[in-house]
């Protein structure tokens, strides 16, 4: 058993002081694994990874990355420590070309390493390599998600966190985005995935956490959770609620 590379312990976080949305949730993620964070609407999943990314105020709890405490680190320093985050929407610079999107991100690396990393990333995303000069705003929805992931991966992070990469995509694109995540896992990156699409997420995840009202409700291997009737009840319950 390897130790987790990213650990968030008893996190309390929210947008306004005194109104926490995440209330003591904890997660851990290991290198070479996909960790899914699931739960009904309003469970605090997105707020939790935004808090880990440094974008939401953390009022208590501790976040460590490879044993270094990053709870107080400003957001723009996270990527330098190897923690990359892909927001759910507006996750590319639409007014800049595909290449410029990556150039901005790769700049934190030493000068000698940049060109090489850029080409390696394009090799991983051949679709993007064909459209280097295209404005990111002109990409299709699926390709935007790819560019957003590429922007995060170009600096070889140790942890890649994605907020609902499947949102707004057609099933075909969801499949290709998730297939790409499986490919990225093989490089040894720890992937943390927040998803509404429970079935698709459990299909590729190794471990998963189910959050309800800002707290951990269930956790375990993806296979166990996929077969857990309680999780299914939450999942279908959420769907019935949404349909109503």
């Amino acid at each position: 058993m390897t130790a987790p590379i990213l650990e968030a312990t008893r996190i309390v976080a929210g947008y306004e002081p005194g109104l926490p949305i995440v209330r003591g949730a904890s997660i851990a993620a290991k290198a070479g694994e996909i960790t899914a964070i699931l739960g009904p609407n309003g469970a605090g999943k997105s707020t939790l990874i935004k808090a880990i990314a440094g974008l939401v105020l953390v009022s208590s709890g501790k976040i460590t990355l490879a044993d270094a405490d990053i709870t107080e680190t400003p957001a723009h320093q996270h990527i330098r420590q190897g923690l990359a985050f892909v927001p759910q929407t507006e996750n590319v610079f639409a007014g800049m070309s595909v290449e410029e999107n990556l150039k901005i991100a790769v700049h934190i690396l030493p000068k000698a390493a940049r060109a090489d990393r850029l080409e390696k990333t394009f090799a991983l995303f051949p679709d993007l390599a064909r459209q280097r000069q295209l404005l990111a705003g002109r990409l299709s929805g699926g390709q935007r998600q790819m560019l957003a992931a590429a922007r995060a991966l170009v600096v070889e992070p140790r942890v890649l966190m994605l907020d609902e990469p499947s949102a707004g995509l057609s099933p075909k694109f969801v499949a290709s985005v998730f297939a790409k995540l499986v490919e990225i896992r093989q490089i040894g990156v720890a992937i943390v995935l927040v998803e509404q699409n429970v079935r698709a997420a459990l299909a590729i995840a190794d471990r998963a956490y189910v959050l309800v009202e800002g707290e951990n409700r269930h956790e375990g291997t993806a296979r166990d959770l996929a077969n857990d009737p309680n999780v299914a009840a939450l999942y279908f319950g959420a769907h019935t609620e949404r349909a109503a």
């Binding site: 990314a53 440094g54 974008l55 400003p74 957001a75 723009h76 320093q77 996270h78 990527i79 330098r80 990359a84 985050f85 927001p87 507006e90 996750n91 590319v92 610079f93 639409a94 007014g95 800049m96 410029e100 150039k103 901005i104 991100a105 700049h107 934190i108 922007r151 600096v155």
Partner: peptide, 21 residues
């Protein structure tokens, strides 16, 4: 890079922070 960072930040400050700016 400084110029790109300015354009990036003016378009989307949150994403710019996430990208290390």
């Amino acid at each position: 890079h400084a110029g790109r960072a300015m354009r990036a930040f003016s378009e989307n400050p949150l994403l710019a922070e996430v990208a290390g700016i």
